[in-house]
Design a protein around this nucleic acid. Sequence first.
DNA 1: GATAACCATGCAAAATAGGTGCATGATCGA
DNA 2: TCGATCATGCACCTATTTTGCATGGTTATC
Lengths: 311, 311
Amino acid sequence: MIDARLITLRVFARCGTIGATAELTGYSPSAVSAQLRELQRVLGMQLLTKDGRGVRLTATGRFLVAGSDPLIAQWESLRAAAMEAGDQVQPHFGIGGFSSAAAQLLAPLAATLRSTRPELEVQVLEADPARCFDLLVAERIDLAVIVAMQSDSYGEDDPRFEQTVLLDDPLDVIIPGNHPLASRSSVTLDELASEPWITEAAGSTYHSLFTAAFTAVGVTPRIAHEAVEWETLIAFVGAGLGVGLLPRLAPLHGADNVVRLRITGKGKPARRIVAAVRRGSITSPLIQESLGILQANADRILTARLEEEDH
Amino acid sequence: MIDARLITLRVFARCGTIGATAELTGYSPSAVSAQLRELQRVLGMQLLTKDGRGVRLTATGRFLVAGSDPLIAQWESLRAAAMEAGDQVQPHFGIGGFSSAAAQLLAPLAATLRSTRPELEVQVLEADPARCFDLLVAERIDLAVIVAMQSDSYGEDDPRFEQTVLLDDPLDVIIPGNHPLASRSSVTLDELASEPWITEAAGSTYHSLFTAAFTAVGVTPRIAHEAVEWETLIAFVGAGLGVGLLPRLAPLHGADNVVRLRITGKGKPARRIVAAVRRGSITSPLIQESLGILQANADRILTARLEEEDH
DNA sequence: GATAACCATGCAAAATAGGTGCATGATCGA
DNA sequence: TCGATCATGCACCTATTTTGCATGGTTATC
């Protein structure tokens, strides 16, 4: 119920360029430019200034954007309370999450909602955590599932969002099936210290988890290969190129020559998966229901994962 | 920056009928109907129900309207703060007031603003106090000048408005120029107890002031005639039909055979004139400036009135 | 109990706001 | 200097919104 042009301005405050704002909101750059100009005209405020080949928020613009945070939150809160009090159903629901969450958690959630609320139009967007926050601001999605990142530009206390922990997803070790330890059900990271490791490129979300896990046990692993997708990582391991860490949420789905081992000992790495919503909307019945479904699914998957892969 | 359809819903909550909402907002009834239907569709809430030949808010609708009060206030507050912080100028400014206020206070205010802020488009609407509040809700005007009414449906602490006292406008007595007391400069109400009085129809704003003035001194005046406009009242007095009470703010502008006398004694009736704005907007520089101009003008008129009419 | 007044709404047509795509100009990095 | 990037203006188009009138249902009046 907040004017779309103000939302656009808020997205611009995140992106810094008209083009990126257009991409994120789904408009064309011309439309964003026109919207922001119109916003300035209606409000009688100068919100943007030319800055080199781009534009930049004025002090007034920054002030307005910052001040609009509680406004958005209050609207979300009101909307949620009205939905709850009136037992109403909203027509559209957008959810977003990073790759493994999208596949493992969001897809089942969408399926469940589709059956329990047939009239609800659910849209799922796969996007990395940073983009998920942007999509929340842009109101393209209403709920995001992300991995908690300490180095994130979105703090826990950001006035725009509310976050709740969904689960701590433990990292397992995957090793080739013909590896000497393959018959074990669990290992310690020490036992694999001398193995060639496969990880993601330095700087990625996963890589920081990787290093954190080994610094916890005081071991410096040798990084032999790099992969981006879990699929690739699993294939590398299956080909005997090395060993790797795989979140328990990520499925092996019958990969050849790969076994998953639980990690024991003092280094028990895990990635924290949290759900994020726009502040104020947390009490919405639809979001509450979704959080419940997500958590139930997560628990179910985590407990079932090891059993099903151990035949 | 709040969606126009929510504003329309808020106006409807005041009026109760689509037609009245249309009249107040400036839309056609069909447009209002379509807007409210669209609002329900977008929010996924049922806000209206059929009720006889009209429609009525549902519980959800009432909840939403009540809850939107602080939302509007917060936006107004943010807007005002941004205007102040950024030294910006808004393009449009609507002011409204009842007849004598419109002529005596709003017209000069508009003229002043026109010269000090040439780029500002000022619109003046004459409307009775109740309608002024509705126009504020409908965002047709940003500032209203009204007479404070205890019997008003808009309390002093209404979450939608903020009110500041502009002035206490004393009521003077006007009598025919050939009346025995015409040479006096002031009278008490007791001295005029036996005169035939001219007032407005019972139930009007002015009438309650009239009766309050006389109950304060314990006299029951004889009401001989009724008039609606000050013009008419003055003409009646000039024709020798009786005497009347005239706010000092209302000008005689050279009426024949009429003199204005100050009232002394314990019964010193006055009408309280207050400025009302949407809650949150009181800190807006434009509104602050306007309030200052209004108050200065009011003081100037009040002090000048008696002198100029005493030649 | 019939008639008139009132109220909301559906529909077709018109108006208008808003969006797209391309071209342009300006700026920055190589 | 050249190419890349970015914002914006313009012409065209789309889609939303509004209007005016007609309709159906409801209440008040006589």
